[in-house]
Design a protein around this nucleic acid. Sequence first.
DNA 1: ATTACTATGTTTCGAGTAA
DNA 2: TTTACTCGAAACATAGTAA
Lengths: 215, 215
Amino acid sequence: MKLATMGGVKHPIIITSSALGQAQGLSQQTASRRLIELERRGLIKREMLRKGQAVMLTEDGLKALGAVYFELKQVFEGEIASLTLVGEIFTGMGEGAYYVSREGYRRQFISKLGFNPYPGTLNIKLSDAQSLRNRALLELFKGIEIEGFSDSGRTFGPVKCFKATIDGRVEGALVMARRSHYGRDVVELIAPVDLRKTLGLKDGDVVKAEIHVAH
Amino acid sequence: MKLATMGGVKHPIIITSSALGQAQGLSQQTASRRLIELERRGLIKREMLRKGQAVMLTEDGLKALGAVYFELKQVFEGEIASLTLVGEIFTGMGEGAYYVSREGYRRQFISKLGFNPYPGTLNIKLSDAQSLRNRALLELFKGIEIEGFSDSGRTFGPVKCFKATIDGRVEGALVMARRSHYGRDVVELIAPVDLRKTLGLKDGDVVKAEIHVAH
DNA sequence: ATTACTATGTTTCGAGTAA
DNA sequence: TTTACTCGAAACATAGTAA
């Protein structure tokens, strides 16, 4: 938490173990040992410098902190209903259309999301820090589970979904594969209609998705 | 936190020490000891019942939890607006180093900014109109107050600081003396490291500082 | 300068158990 | 049943110091 409040979420912070200890009212040795332990647990990444070290939270580290934040948020503000993601749309290589139209998935989309998805996904590259944080928080929610299956010798993994309102106008869903072909800063949306056409979007346009997270 | 998430904020919750321990992956003894300690510190109120005890957070207990919540909120909601200042660096007459390394200031920098400043300041002459406007706006924010003090017959005045991200890489701070030896178009930055060395800067180079103004 | 190891002291934990 | 004490064990912190 101290590292996060010092700014180690966005950029690495350059700090010495003794300064970190001092900031926490602890010794240099304890700060050093804790940094080692956090690194071992994969919660931070470190790089040693001549004067101190560059420290930054990992995705897992931010997630662990998010779990605490979340619990407290529920105490102070009640349940969270939705998270907003903002980013630019871009064209993928058509894998989205392929997966979405697999019958094993399509059937579940219809029964669990309540709509027959248009064969294609809208790819969004998240741009701002808030969206990246919200994307990390989404990992903590259960969402709507789409089960994996096998089809003609291929296996298709399980997928987690969230209902979403896209640009305040279209009801669709966010789909998150356990192992995505994109990085953590990309999300994919589906809807009963062709989102590009319906919303009049082209590559580079900014789109906003409100993700509904029934707890 | 566990007691709060169990509902002990509004109404007392009725619980046994062994159930509380189990909920936290701890023993009955530890849960009991912790309840005693929380009560001693005035963070909870208790009433023993035949089967278990009625436990509720006090005002102080909720306040203590709130302090943690707000710190995390700033990490995740980014409730910190920021202003960008751009300008050319130049060499002063070494006064910066003198002031920064006064123990009366240094101690406060460590406790209030979270780092031990490198003994020297990076002077920036603001070049564009936007930066000059932002510099003026900074006067309106409270910032982080560094108190004045006396040392061997000399008085050192109060200083206002803002945490800052310099060139998107280093976390430091903007320091603004109430009565600066420079004009309104000059700002001074400090950081835990030698900014010139770390960022590879020389006189005349343009540097960008993102000033965080706690809301 | 740093980081981080070793040794030692201190705090925290839980088994056993009294009330 | 409970709560909570005692006490040995485990975890954690810091001083001293090597690299």
